[in-house]
């Protein structure tokens, strides 16, 4: 006796398979083995599209880059993919599944922001979104979370952000908020795209950039601690229309607390075939 006809069976089967597959994709094994060092990366992923107008999806390249680098904690910017402009992609989840990591998506899509997310080898605890002062410009956010890293690291606080690039006073207010959030915890890593470029567009150097000065006076620059130069050209590729500001340093990994940066292990990864930024990586010991 047939209970369901072919059409009914098909719809039921497809929906059940969809739900089952979603469950399967959500499984995450835990990592409890102790670690000697942690590699931290920040990467602006350009809404999961490579630089310029070629429009190639860059998720596979990003995943490979992170895998090759062995990064443990990754802060992403421009990670909002849940819009038609980005083909309705849940890129953060895809990366987390591909890399077998935990993820925190970050600010809701309805906020109209460009996305800030976190990937971690270890479980992400108490994540939240903090709205940054953004008067007269796009809403900017920071995500704040804890990651309970196995010994000897213990629980650390992680902040990921993407600051404004158009109004200096707004950017400065946002940086002040980041510093305030960082100082709320004993051990904090604050990373992201800080867009310390506004002053440089006026012909000033990085050391005269108010946002950079504030952050540098309040937090520790892991790139410099690792042996890099503060004004080193590292990350952003501007268009040919603005050749004077090219390969400027606007992505940072700051920290506060009992961390030791491993000297010489700072890296710049990726190129414009992946994103309009490059990934910055540093390595810490406890």
């Amino acid at each position: 006796m047939k209970i369901l006809n072919k059409q009914q069976s098909t719809i039921l089967l497809i929906i059940i398979l969809t739900i089952g597959l979603a469950f399967y994709q959500s499984y995450r094994p835990s990592h409890t083995e102790s670690v000697d060092t942690i590699k931290v990366m920040t990467y602006n992923v350009h809404l999961f599209t490579d630089m310029g107008s070629s429009g190639q999806n860059n998720l596979v390249e990003i995943a490979q880059l992170i895998k090759d680098a062995g990064a443990d904690i990754i802060g992403l910017q421009e990670s909002e993919g849940s819009r038609m402009a980005s083909s309705n992609q849940y890129g953060v989840k895809w990366l987390a599944d591909e890399l077998n990591m935990y993820y925190y998506f970050g600010p809701s899509t309805h906020l109209g922001v460009w996305g800030v997310s976190l990937l971690s080898r270890w479980e992400i605890l108490n994540p939240r979104v903090e709205l940054l002062p953004s008067e007269g410009t796009l809403q900017r956010v920071a995500i704040v979370a804890e990651i309970d890293i196995p010994s000897p690291f213990g629980k650390i606080s992680v902040i990921v952000t993407h600051l404004s690039f158009d109004l200096q006073e707004v950017q400065l207010a946002q940086a002040e908020k980041i510093v305030e959030l960082a100082k709320n915890n004993d051990k904090t890593i604050a990373m992201g795209d800080f867009n310390t470029v506004i002053a440089q567009l006026d012909g000033k150097s990085i050391n005269d950039d108010p946002t950079f000065v504030l952050l540098n006076n309040s937090l520790v620059d892991s790139w410099v601690e690792s042996g890099g130069a503060a004004d080193e050209n590292t990350s952003f590729h501007f268009s040919e229309a603005e050749p004077d500001i090219n390969n400027t340093r606007i992505d940072y990994i700051w920290y506060l607390g009992d961390f030791t940066v491993i000297i010489g292990n700072h890296q710049v990864l990726g190129d414009e075939s992946v994103s309009d930024h490059r990934a910055i990586l540093v390595e810490f010991t406890a």
């Binding site: 719809i11 497809i14 929906i15 994709q25 999961f48 998720l59 083909s87 849940y90 989840k93 895809w94």
Partner: peptide, 23 residues
């Protein structure tokens, strides 16, 4: 239409929510 949407959602989940050009 219900079949179409069911298939779309299934395909999207099989591809793990990325575009057809992703990989």
């Amino acid at each position: 239409i219900i079949m179409g949407i069911s298939f779309k959602e299934f395909i999207v989940v099989v591809m793990n929510n990325v575009s057809i050009q992703a990989s």
